[in-house]
């Protein structure tokens, strides 16, 4: 192992240990895991009755000698929607908090300048901290996913198959990347402000805009959402009619979609929802077709992640170092 790799590993292990010792982070994680379990449990209980209904229909159809039995339209992975949404909203707050603590803890202990005075490059410091954080997010996402799958199987009476498991794995990787990006936001904002609390407030402001305001704006501007029950339904228009009318609102639709595109959270949500069959239109797609349909969201997630990792490295490089004195 090269010296640089060893330093990165040491920094990552330090980051992971320090995060586990932080009480406030543990409380936030506790909130996230509790409500995730509740959301999956509630969805799984509801799903169990639908699985039983389908089994009863299937048995009755077989008993009556029906040649063609309609396949089940149930999507067990979609029960994890609540868990994905909680990772999107509360997980991002946890990630920002971890990023903020990375910088503020070292500053408060006066160890950040000390680390920077050692033969550790800004790149190694950024990579080590980010790797430690990613390690923590992997633990968190893995725990949430395993609990979710077991709840769906045991409570919902519907175990996922290997293909669904692979799609879920991709959604979990997207969640880890998403949380890593918000970790960078928290660390960058804190590293670039003199008072750490101000950095935290800036990062939370970005979170508010990206996770809550922009996606909500896009949804609110959707023409069909203007009337309870749907505008096009109120106008007695079918899908073809809706498409025809929306041709006259192309600029409006472009603006609305652009607002959503600006949100990193929306790209993660679209990708994760497609992988977990939350959206009906993607059910039954092969993996290749699914990835092709979501290439735009994948591209944006990669772009935002790389930009933030470079930002983190740049921010750490700007941290002051103790001048090396010769005696």
């Amino acid at each position: 192992m090269s010296e640089s790799t060893a330093r990165v590993k040491a920094l990552a292990a330090h980051e992971y240990r320090a995060a586990v010792r932080s009480k406030i982070l543990l409380v936030l994680l506790g909130i996230l895991v509790t409500i995730t379990v509740v959301s999956v449990y509630v969805a799984a209980v509801d799903h169990r009755s639908k699985v039983a209904d389908y089994a009863a229909y299937r048995a009755a159809a077989q008993a009556s000698g029906l040649a063609r039995i309609a396949p089940s339209t149930l999507a067990p992975l979609s029960l994890l929607r609540g868990a994905l949404e909680y990772l999107e909203i509360i997980g991002a707050v946890v990630a920002i908090t971890l990023g903020y603590l990375t910088v503020s803890r070292e500053r408060a202990n006066r160890t950040l300048t000390l680390i920077r005075s050692r033969p550790v490059t800004a790149g190694e410091l950024a990579s080590g901290s980010l790797l430690g954080a990613v390690g923590l997010f992997t633990t968190l996402v893995a725990a949430t996913t395993i609990v979710g799958v077991v709840c769906v199987g045991l409570i919902g009476n519907d175990w996922i198959n290997a293909a669904q498991g692979f799609k879920l794995l991709l959604a979990a990787i997207a969640a880890i990347i998403y949380l890593g990006a918000f970790y960078c936001v928290g660390a960058i904002a804190t590293a670039n402000t003199r008072v750490a609390a101000n950095g935290l407030m800036i990062a939370l402001g970005i979170w508010l805009l990206v996770v809550l305001i922009l996606p909500q704006l896009g949804d609110t501007l959707d023409a069909d959402n203007q009337i309870p029950g749907g505008l096009f339904k109120a106008l007695t228009l079918d899908r073809a009619g809706e498409t025809e009318i929306l041709k006259h609102f192309s600029t409006y639709e472009t603006t609305r979609i652009s607002i959503e595109e600006a949100s990193f959270a929306k790209h993660y949500e679209r990708f994760a929802f497609a992988m977990t069959e939350v959206q009906d239109k993607y059910r039954g797609f092969s993996l290749g077709r699914l990835l092709g349909a979501k290439r735009n969201d994948i591209g944006w997630m990669i772009f935002y992640s790389f930009a933030l990792v470079f930002g983190l490295r740049w921010s750490f490089r700007r941290q002051p170092t103790i001048p090396q004195e010769t005696t």
Partner: peptide
């Protein structure tokens, strides 16, 4: 957003009537 909603509903309604 309220204005946009109003504007969209009126616009969609006019187009729907024609269609």
């Amino acid at each position: 957003l309220g204005w946009s909603s109003h504007h969209t509903i009126v616009g969609v309604y006019d187009e729907a009537v024609k269609l």
